[in-house]
Nucleic acid binder design. Structure first.
Lengths: 333, 333
DNA sequence: ATGAAAGCGCTAACAG
DNA sequence: CTGTTAGCGCTTTCAT
């Protein structure tokens, strides 16, 4: 079917190896033949066969990514889609291909990874989720297979990762609210075992400490999952104790629930801040102030780190992606 | 690095080709050597190198998919994510790998496709969107490259596609509403040039015809895009003309807008039906009745068709995936 | 600066 | 039923 390097060689009156060198951008090729080869490539519309190249090189320029389907979160929160677009962007810029697999359980995740490695199909892997004591990380390290993880892992030793500074993000939210005069700020979080969650709560606590404001533990509520109904009930619970002037949530879905509880009961005067700046945040009434975590950029830099390692063996151990507080009506007090 | 077919051959005291045959499941191999080879594979933990196999076979078992990033729709509506999970499912079942690229413009879409083909990396391609007069389809047909499209294309000649029966889906919605006694049913649609949109509107019209109910063209509104605010205004416009007893929308986002307009103005007694059964539909107040289009299954069957063509050259020209009306509070009258 | 030749790991005639 | 051999298309020593 295809036109091969041999055809080009014949057309340009050189050997296949010369063509290969021209493509690789070798500098010890005379300008003249270089041009001749390039013309032939153009003329024949030649494109290297990446499979053949991969076999010869042991580099396929393929990066595998593994994504969770677990829970409905994948569908309600476009986090992973943003990550994927960022991944795709850097990949395209650097000539890499992206392969994906979904997993439901940790076993599936691990076997996806094994498959990528065993098949010799991928040069590197990106993990989009981390558990504490992640078996996959351990496996990849044992195999010495290049990988990067999105989200800071428990043990960062020898792992490339990219993440937001969740501590700082929440700290900044609180600082801002304090500046606006708030003193009683409730906290609604979920999945307290996750690093993200811990960091955000720490930010909340630390901001109080630094600003010399007491924390009322009663208005810190942690729920099971990032769900609107749980946010709704958390708010109800908080209000049964006392009325804060603001409430920060570790996810927009929780904040949506808060918002509808307040609306339903016609309660005014409580600022709300969400996290992740999901697309619906701006359509809430009132439009929800939220922390944008730059998910696309997380994906982008994940690939960048991986490619840097793969091609230049540069190991930037991690990147911190900035967050942005997007202020909307829900904090206009 | 890896253990190769030669190592296995040596271990089992056979030639590499025998090993290859065992792996391929050839039946003219004695049970005894078959066992010996399998043991050796097990013992050495051998996994075929799919790159080498691909080069030799001219079949990589890789399927490329191209996804639009255009508009915010990708992020608000999890359609594509569902499709991707379905794709992933069948791919995993049949031992295929999935590669993806995003595109913003038609040129990018086409160049993604060219890249898949030229690189010899993919065996087939799945298009997740179709335009009328789609250049990509034409290109793929010229190249005689295997592909399937999700969504019925303008010209279905020689193209494999999978889609819902959008005409029927809407027809059924209307029939149901008629059965419930509704006679004045407004229609809110968007992107009227798309096949989906045309089909859904046809279903609306045809149901009226068959049931012998007149259509009031004034309460058929077509807007630019699938956006909540546009649904909101469409409803406003309709109510300025007359009050229907029900309104059907070609997308949940439109229906969300309708719903909030009715809530804000405290208007009761209008049933609402959405389309696509997005995750938020069930959380609306009232919970939104919506047509589930089975996006995951669309993806699943897309891969199935492609693999059937690739491996057995069976060309099932298309699949129709059933839709399901999910009835919730918004039609409880 | 360029060519010849070997080899990446696997498959598929062709023999036997 | 099994081994030998010749590629698949490209890269990369090793010569010259």
């Amino acid at each position: 079917m295809g036109v091969t390097i041999k055809d080009v060689a014949k057309e340009a009156n050189v050997s296949p190896s010369t063509v290969s060198r021209v493509i690789a951008g070798s500098n010890r090729i005379s300008e003249e033949t270089k041009k001749r080869v390039k013309d032939a490539i153009e003329k024949l519309n030649y494109h290297p066969n990446v499979v053949a190249r991969g076999l010869s090189n042991k580099m396929t320029k393929v990066i595998g990514i593994v994504l969770p389907t677990e829970g409905e979160n994948l569908f309600k929160n476009p986090f992973f889609v943003y990550v994927m677009t960022g991944i795709s962007k850097y990949a395209q810029e650097s000539g890499y291909y992206i392969m994906y697999t979904f997993f439901k359980t940790e076993e599936e995740k691990l076997s996806s990874i094994k498959n990528y490695i065993n098949s010799n199909l991928a040069d590197g892997i990106i993990l989009t989720t981390v558990h504490s004591k992640d078996k996959c990380i351990k496996y990849l390290q044992e195999k010495e297979f290049p990988f990067v993880v999105i989200g800071r892992p428990e043990d960062t030793k020898n792992v490339l990762w990219v993440d937001n500074d969740n501590f700082q993000a929440m700290y900044n939210v609180l600082s801002k609210l304090f500046m606006k005069g708030h003193r009683e700020i409730a906290f609604i979080g979920a999945k307290s075992k996750l690093n993200v969650s811990k960091d955000r709560l720490s930010g909340y606590r630390q901001a109080h400490r630094i600003h010399g404001i007491d924390i009322d533990e009663n208005i810190i509520v942690e729920v099971e999952d990032f769900r609107e109904d749980l946010g709704y009930h958390a708010m109800k619970k908080i209000l049964s104790i006392r009325k804060p002037t603001a409430v920060v949530c570790t996810d927009d879905l929780l904040a949506f629930g808060v918002s509808s509880y307040l609306a339903e009961n016609n309660i005014k005067g409580i600022s709300i801040v969400g996290f992740n700046n999901t697309p619906l945040a701006q359509y809430q009434k009132p439009a929800l102030t939220s922390v944008d975590i730059n998910a696309k950029k997380l994906g982008y830099y994940a690939v960048k780190m991986l490619v840097d390692k793969l091609e230049r063996n540069i190991e930037n151990m991690h990147y911190i992606i900035e967050t942005n507080l997007i202020e909307r009506e829900s904090t206009r007090y």
